[in-house]
Amino acid sequence: MSAVLRQAEPADPLARLGRLIAVASGKGGVGKSTVSANLAAILARRGLRVGLVDADLYGPSIPGMLGIAADTPPAMSPGGKVIPAEAHGVKVISMAMLTGDDRPAVLRGPMVTKYLRMFVTQVDWSTLDVLLLDLPPGTGDTQLTLAQSFPLAGAVVVSTPQDVSLKIARRGIRMMEQVSVPILGIVENMSGFTCPSCGGVTHIFHQGGGRSVAEGLGVPFLGAIPLDPAIVDGGDSGVPLVVDSPTSLAARAFEVVADALTGDLAPSGGLRMPFDWTLATGAGRPAPASHGPAGRPLALDYDATGLTIGWPDGSRHLDPRELRLACRCAACRDELTGKALLDPAKVPLDVVPVRIWSVGNYALGIAFSDGHDSGICTFEALRALEGSEAEDV
């Protein structure tokens, strides 16, 4: 199974992190961190190099679940990076390791963004096969920051069988889809309670809701985790159930989820990301791809006539000034009404892009010669722009 994720040593520092997989939930209390901790431990026991980012900055719980002391600040490497803690073969970074158990993280949005990026890029992970990101519940700053900053391989959405939980899980899935993060599947946690005395199963939170939602949304159903007191005990003791009782029914359920997850990590194709391309020098130009999904570019090219984007169904040529006038950032277009705020007369006729970079899996950031650099052009918006058809890719 380790061959699914094991990769050659890459030169790109971000590529050294392997597959970035978000573990998300629409609401709190569904056991998302428990699923993250147990999945990380399983993958590590299979011989994979695993990292785990506790991205819930306001309510970090991963260190306690893995038995990592939260009162000892992490050391720094000679290169100035944070050395992650390690337990059960998993490398871990968490706000709890920086603040301790009793001090709250009082952070505004920009600081949340700063810490999240630091946890991914300023930690001495060495080389990983997979980096799991245990997200807080909801669809806010954390989710958007990670989706915009890093090319996530996909997201696992955790829910309980309750109707209210499943409805909110749908919102989380839709949010991930909007920013082109593939949904690797749904995990139904607390699926049923098995009586330790008689073996009877009681479905406290209903039955089969996770599978039904997965089928309705057309995403994989990764598995159902039973409601087992031993899972809670493992989280409280710092020894995940899959380590303490690897042959138990609940541990085998986690194994099923891990099997489905690692079997669904083949590259999806498309333009090689992340990249940051300075057009004047050519530095950072992205490598083209030979295949990919319809909504993701295969190649980018630029010359004096404009930007050419190669798509699976052909290429499209975009005039530089047309691209500048199409910006939909808050400075160029009203966020509520969609009304254009940019005066075309103030945009130079000879405006050109000077830098293009990837934004997660779903957009390009473009800086122009007139100094404008705050726009994000989604792939969907780029495909909708009028332009002349070029040769097929």
Rank of each mutant, 00 (worst) to 15 (best):
L336T: 14
L131F: 11
A40G: 08
A330C: 10
N189S: 05
V90F: 09
E380V: 15
C329A: 03
E177M: 12
P293T: 09
R252P: 08
A367H: 05
A260K: 13
A22W: 07
L128G: 07
V354R: 11
K346V: 13
M97K: 06
A37K: 02
L265K: 08
F254L: 08
S149A: 15
H88M: 00
L325M: 12
Q207P: 00
S245T: 13
P196R: 01
G263E: 01
K114C: 09
G64W: 12
V213P: 02
L300H: 10
G199M: 10
H372S: 11
M176E: 03
A44R: 00
P137M: 11
L300I: 09
R383W: 12
R171C: 10
S388Y: 12
E9A: 15
L48F: 04
A24E: 06
P348F: 02
A260S: 13
G209D: 06
L152D: 08
T34E: 01
P229R: 07
R49T: 07
V157K: 04
H372G: 09
G371T: 12
A41P: 04
A44C: 09
P110L: 10
V232E: 11
A345N: 08
A345E: 14
C198N: 07
R103W: 03
L307T: 05
K32A: 09
L279H: 00
N189L: 11
G314C: 04
R285A: 15
A8F: 03
T34R: 05
G28M: 09
I356L: 11
D373M: 03
S358D: 09
S165I: 10
V256A: 15
Y58C: 15
I309G: 02
S191N: 01
L271S: 03
D233C: 13
K167V: 15
L116H: 00
A224E: 15
L279C: 02
A11V: 09
R355A: 08
D54G: 05
P73T: 07
T247I: 12
V106K: 01
G360T: 01
F275L: 08
S191R: 02
T278Q: 14
G185H: 09
S61M: 03
P312Q: 04
G79T: 12
G109K: 02
E86M: 13
L298R: 08
H206E: 15
F379S: 06
D350R: 09
V347R: 01
